[in-house]
Amino acid sequence: MHQTYARAPSLARANGQPILAALSKAGQRRYVLFLLLIAPAFLLRITTAAYPILQTIYLSFTNLNLIKNTNEFIGLQNYVAVFHDYGVREALSFTIMLVVSATILELGIGMLVALLLNAAFVGRGFARTINLIPWAIPTIVAGYTFRWLLDDQFGLIPYWLNLLSGARMVAFIDPVSARIAVILVHVWKDAPFMAIIFLAGLQGVPQDLYEAARVDGANVWHRFWHITLPLVMPLTITMGLFRVVWSLGSFDLVYGLTQGGPGVATSVLALQVFREGIMFFKFGFASTISVVLLVVVAIVGAIGLWLFRRSEVSY
């Protein structure tokens, strides 16, 4: 049975006439109703999303500082200063490093865990439940907890490493080990969530595809590579994109774990926004860093959408 849908009024001008004039009476009424019905949602989005973004962009061209009571338009000065700022430059590089490496590891480990949790074994329900515990812990709590777990005197992890190798580990006084520690804690925290999402994806893969492949002689690896992976690829890209965007905007783990140190080795852009905006009240400069962050998110989002379109499969 064919279902017909009323056509939405075209926004284009018809024969050079204004839209409303070009429509019949009934069409005009339908158009007004259409505007009335979308108005609440449109207003909501304008006030909660578009306005803050536009205001942030505007503020990025000012020297608004609540402590110094300045609020003047200063053109591109903040943008010049941002790229000359040692802290912001280092934060930008570690932000990209953290987001890319943590997301790849989370996707990989999440997939492996999901494959395990999808297998049939006794206690599977329990395993699926405890898998989510790290994700359920508030991030700031996880940050402080790992600061103790990595403490050179009382930390469980340095203690184990000491038993295994005899070396005494001091994670956060070396920039490389501090960065690795932050990335791994990030992965520990978020990979379980990825696993649950992938598990849902895996359960949606039709079993008859696997059976047909088995009949054709495909081994486990072939089945994963040619059936599982392509079918969960859109989900992988969507989740990867979400993780990237969420990670770019968060700083609670870094704040709890290292405060961005040693030096600025583990500082991230969101932490810089917090420091400049909330600690120093330099709203103009903090807005500029936010705009840089917004551009990074937009680029990553565009790449993600492009990949998503390429990965669509049909069966």
Partner: peptide, 17 residues
């Protein structure tokens, strides 16, 4: 603000960066 600057730069030196 000033203490943040000192902390960033001093810690970078004290950790051989």
């Amino acid at each position: 603000e000033a203490l943040t600057i000192l902390e960033d730069t001093a810690a970078a030196y004290l950790t051989h960066q």
